[in-house]
Amino acid sequence: MIPASVALLTLGVLLAEPVSRALAAARWPNRDPTGALLLWQAVGLAGGLALLGAGLTFGLAPLGDSLPAAVGTLADHAGRREWPSRLGLLQLLALAATLVLAARLLGVLGLATARTLRARRRHRDLLDVLATPWPAMAGARVLAHPLPVAYCLPGLRSRLVVSEGALSALSAGELAAVLAHERAHLRERHDLVVLPFVAWGATAPWVPGMARAQLAVAALVEMRADDVARASAGELALAGALRRVGGAIGASERATLTSFSAAVGGRLDRLEQCPDQPSRTVRAATRLTAVALVAVPTLALLLS
């Protein structure tokens, strides 16, 4: 299993740094944000599997010719309450490092999730007190504020919020674009897409590729929601809404998935440039690459 361990370690390191950094700097995701989001999720999942699998396969290599066999041998020893004598110091260090990495990944993810849910709950409670239900849309609330503000609060008890300033400042088409954008965030659960990359970056903030992943994914979910709004309400309406609402958001992005917030200028440029959709072949290749990235470490672990 040593060759498989080396291959998995190499794959994990490549995905964590140069691949993630290159993907964050690439321009093609502007044309296919959905495909890029799938690829990012594959990079994160495959990177975690590869790094954890490398330590596991190296640490258990003396116990069998494959990982399933080695795990079975370890389970037999555990059932007899015996320590496998074939495990040396290097193997124990590798297993300990794998356990520490897994605990950090899961711990950071769990902490980020708990903080996010707590902040959302406080925010939702405030909205229920300060905002009033909007008869025009079920589940939406109107906030008595003069600035044009629009955002969503995702979760099982989601909220879609527009301010009185937004209702008065936006035309009917612009308001439809805002609502379509926000509903896309809620319907496609973009908060769940972004959250693992918050943990991914916080696990090793000193690794540039991992640190940039969160910003890249956050930008992509905005592009995806923009595309939904453009298809629904039109490019002119969305551009007008971006200009009117873009600088007025004040809600914390840690608690909500703010709509017209960061990089408004870049999003307007993208609308004006109206990038062509990639061909079906390119889109299929992107999605197949995402599947392959996850399949490679998975098969390596099962067949090593």
Rank of each mutant, 00 (worst) to 15 (best):
I2W: 01
P3W: 08
A4E: 09
A4C: 12
A4F: 02
S5P: 03
V6M: 10
T10V: 14
L11F: 01
L11C: 05
G12T: 04
G12L: 06
V13P: 09
V13H: 09
S20L: 04
R21H: 00
A22I: 11
A22E: 02
N30H: 11
D32S: 13
D32R: 05
A36V: 05
L38A: 15
L39C: 01
G44H: 13
G47Y: 01
G47D: 02
L49D: 03
L49Q: 04
T57K: 03
F58S: 11
G59R: 02
L60D: 07
A61G: 05
L63G: 00
L63C: 03
G64K: 07
P68D: 00
A69I: 13
A70F: 11
V71I: 14
G72R: 12
T73S: 15
G79F: 12
R81T: 13
W83R: 14
P84C: 07
S85N: 10
L89R: 10
A94F: 06
A97C: 12
A97I: 07
T98D: 04
V100K: 02
A102I: 11
L105E: 11
V108G: 00
L109D: 11
A112Q: 12
T113C: 08
A114H: 11
R115H: 13
R118T: 14
R120S: 03
R121V: 11
